[in-house]
């Protein structure tokens, strides 16, 4: 079931359990995330895929009464450790949300915001990095003349690519997509899918999606979750054409979920 080529394992989810208060949401999840690839997390609503995604950048720590058991290993260290520096961690694992999240400032400042957090303030360098990030997000051509305009004036799809560019600017190792195209029209979401495939050279992506065609189109690996458990994980082609488990076969065929 592990892929035959030998990519590097960037993250390893190891016996992960997660609780909202007393309620266990993730049950002994085991999952490798391979570098420079796209891994899709699929499954019916409430299966825990978004919860799992938000474990990677410890988003759950923003709210009280949550706790983790088990480990998520990144380059040998457990990022669920109590002493993990969350601010540093989150700049290594960027996140793109369901709805675009343009900050109330100009297009340029949106991208520069993350750089400023990393104390990158040298003007020519910032300019260069902003352009690079916008190019990576396939947005440069559309906004290069409107960099000083308020980001709220962009279209929904542009705003989402701006959010992605903002995350890319701080050169994260991983980008986490939480249903990032579900609020967009088909053309905008196609643009983002195209961009994701391009981006594989630089970053590893983990994608939560409701849209099975999208998982099949863009991802190299797919993991199916159900009721907080990982049902099956493997190369996308395997999962969609030769699943090992009955449940996976029924899910990808659209029998439930």
């Amino acid at each position: 079931m592990e892929p035959s080529k030998a990519p590097q394992e960037l993250l390893r989810v190891d016996k992960l359990r997660f609780y909202f208060g007393a309620h266990q949401v993730l049950k002994d999840v085991e999952l490798p995330i391979w570098g420079n690839s796209i891994t899709s997390l699929i499954g019916p609503s409430g299966c825990g895929k978004t919860t799992l995604l938000r474990c990677f950048n410890r988003m759950h720590d923003l709210y009280p009464n949550n706790h983790y058991e088990g480990r998520i290993l990144m380059e040998g260290r457990n990022i669920l450790d109590k002493n993990e520096d969350l601010i540093e961690l989150r700049s290594q694992l960027g996140m793109v949300f369901q709805k675009p999240t343009p900050f109330p400032m100009s297009v340029y400042d949106n991208i520069a915001y993350g750089l400023k957090l990393k104390k990158i303030t040298n003007k020519p360098l910032v300019r260069e990095l902003v352009e690079k990030a916008l190019r990576q997000a396939n947005l440069w051509e559309e906004v290069k003349d409107r960099l000083r305009e308020n980001a709220l004036g962009l279209s929904g799809g542009q705003q989402q690519r701006l959010s992605i560019a903002r995350s890319l600017a701080v050169s994260p190792a991983v980008l986490l997509f939480d249903e990032a195209t579900s609020a967009l029209d088909p053309i905008s979401s196609a643009k983002i899918e195209e961009m994701m495939v391009e981006l594989k050279k630089q970053v590893t992506m983990v994608v939560v999606t409701h849209n099975m065609q999208q998982a099949a189109r863009v991802s190299d690996y797919t993991a199916l979750m159900w009721l907080g458990e990982l049902v099956e994980h493997g190369e996308t082609t395997e999962i969609f054409t030769r699943p090992k488990k009955k449940m996976t076969e029924r899910y990808v065929a659209g029998h439930f979920g």
Binding site: N57, M59, I87, K99
Partner: peptide
Amino acid sequence: PWTLREAALALGSSYHV
């Protein structure tokens, strides 16, 4: 919107920023 804060936090901002 709450997601705006999450987006900024996910970039590695601290909350007061």
